[in-house]
Design a protein around this nucleic acid. Structure first.
Lengths: 211, 211
DNA sequence: TTATACCACGAACTAATGTTCTATGTCAAG
DNA sequence: CTTGACATAGAACATTAGTTCGTGGTATAA
């Protein structure tokens, strides 16, 4: 069943309004914009939109409208606390339960799981590599173990710093391979490395990076 | 001024509620959750949260609360059409107005503008570089011009392929510099290159890429 | 024509929800 | 002790906003 012009207009207005205000419009606000003088007509059309699966409504609740399905991808969102900036030498901050001041949000088509994830903004050049630059955001998964070839954040006990490298367990030693082929690998004792987490996603902003 | 436990709770509840319902809570709903029996107390605390810049309020409007600033990532979402996959040799598909089958969603703290943006998934090795790998998602901005040093997708007329390179205008020629320092730059006539768009963001999934 | 479904209007009603006001308790400074 | 800023209650009030209902127009099918 195709939507009428009016219904398309309503849908569009709801989405617009939602983006601009952060909360859904009332029936009367919709009516005013779309050119409907009667609240019942809006209500009627909202009923159709709901029946056809374009929106969801909570009855008896003001502004109880939400966009449904692919329009909102409300369900497919992942909130990741942005724990702060890191630079080599700093320990990676532990994500705490207090209210995160900032969060990064991704959709589930980029990243599946949510548990144990946290984001860091890379600061400074010391950890830089072909893969990770200043200003990048890396999304980490908290874990102590890593498979060969995984990109991990490791704490080098003897050097007292943290770095992002690919890790390879080679018997009595651990090879930490920079992603940049120009750089030489580092070999350390398993005892001297502590895996802080695994890199899941790297987000690099080339321009238009505010903040 | 630090937030009290109560205020943190309110803030957290608003964010939670917003994510679950798609619209903000009422004063009474907040009160019920946080354990405040009086609407005026909630109102009072909301006033403080607003004064300190954690939320914004629209007075006289039901559910007229929105998270501010970095917290607004909840609402400040950007939908970017995922136009498809590219590989060197293919022309970059033109974003059309038909309903995008897939979209990538980012928050505004990663990317400001929305107009003229589209996303591509990099397929195959031909365009690969230290910066862009197979499977990466690049977010492009449609434009025909580029400044020196910008990473752009260019159509090489004589070779009949598209590639991602840093561009430098050098008088009578154009230098296309791979991000990978191991690779040599390409020099071409300005006539033979057509800029398809500028790379704004690169998203690299290291693992857990479901495709 | 007549019936029926669909769409629209406007008014009245009611529930939901923000605002305001008064009162109370706490705590630190004067 | 008194004062004043701050935090909290509770209740009355005023609007906002969703719901319902009676009415009328326009098609299409019987």
């Amino acid at each position: 069943m195709a939507l009428s012009e009016r219904q398309k207009g309503i849908l569009k207005f709801i989405a617009d309004f939602l983006r601009r205000h952060g909360y859904p419009p009332t029936i009367r606000e919709i009516g005013a914009k779309v050119g409907i003088s009667s609240t019942s007509v809006v209500n009627y059309n909202l009923g159709i939109l709901e029946r056809d699966g374009y929106i969801e409504r909570d009855r008896e609740i003001s502004r109880g409208i939400r966009l449904a399905g692919g329009l909102a991808s409300l369900t497919g969102r992942i909130q990741i606390p942005l724990c702060g900036r890191i630079a080599a030498g700093d320990p990676i901050p532990i994500p705490d339960d207090s209210f995160p001041t900032e969060t990064i949000e991704l959709t589930r088509d980029i990243l599946k799981e949510e548990e144990g994830l946290y984001a860091l903004e890379v600061k400074g050049d010391s950890m830089i590599d072909a893969l990770v630059h200043d200003g990048d955001i890396v999304i980490m998964k908290h874990q102590k173990e890593a498979e060969n070839g995984e990109m991990v954040a490791v704490w080098l006990r003897d050097k007292g710093e943290t770095t992002l490298k690919k890790i390879y367990h080679e018997g009595e030693r651990v090879r930490l391979q920079p992603a940049n082929p120009l750089l030489e690998p580092i070999y350390v004792h398993p005892r001297d490395v502590e895996i802080q987490g695994k890199v899941m996603v790297v987000i690099r902003r080339l321009q238009a990076s505010p903040s």
